[in-house]
Design a protein around this nucleic acid. Sequence first.
DNA 1: CTATATTTGTGCGTATGTATG
DNA 2: ACATACATACGCACAAATATA
Lengths: 79, 79
Amino acid sequence: MIDPLSPTPLYLQVADLLAARIERGELRPGNPLPSESQIQGQYDVARGTARRAVAVLRERGLVVTLHARGTFVAERPTT
Amino acid sequence: MIDPLSPTPLYLQVADLLAARIERGELRPGNPLPSESQIQGQYDVARGTARRAVAVLRERGLVVTLHARGTFVAERPTT
DNA sequence: CTATATTTGTGCGTATGTATG
DNA sequence: ACATACATACGCACAAATATA
């Protein structure tokens, strides 16, 4: 899954794993993403790394984050 | 403003720019300094460079840093 | 209304690795 | 060998907003 020795940064590896779950339809629009704390535990990374991974998905427009509520899979535009 | 080609290290250039803002009264005693992240963005340097710049100001007694709170312009001694 | 737990947001502290001059 | 500078990644502490008992 995650390779700490890979030249690919951990936060990118985590981001890609989460993105894959979304594209696979395992996480559907409106569904909550795992919390930072859960990502931390599931992938055994620091919270900062989990946060950065989610930030990548946000920049890609895949998810939307609400303060103190969570991060959710973005609704895809109707087109 | 900042010259990456200058023989003067970046962290010193940044420190001097911040010190100038303090001496100019633009940043007053008690006011928060820009965060490391903000310095990073404003001067387009790495976080380590921003940190080191702030460290210089701390050594000069211009600012005080509180863990997990921030860095603040030092209150000038009454003399 | 109060208290607690959860989750995101922010800021500093530290260590490691890489590259350059 | 050394100093500078970048990036990544770990951690701690606290604030702010939300949800729930």
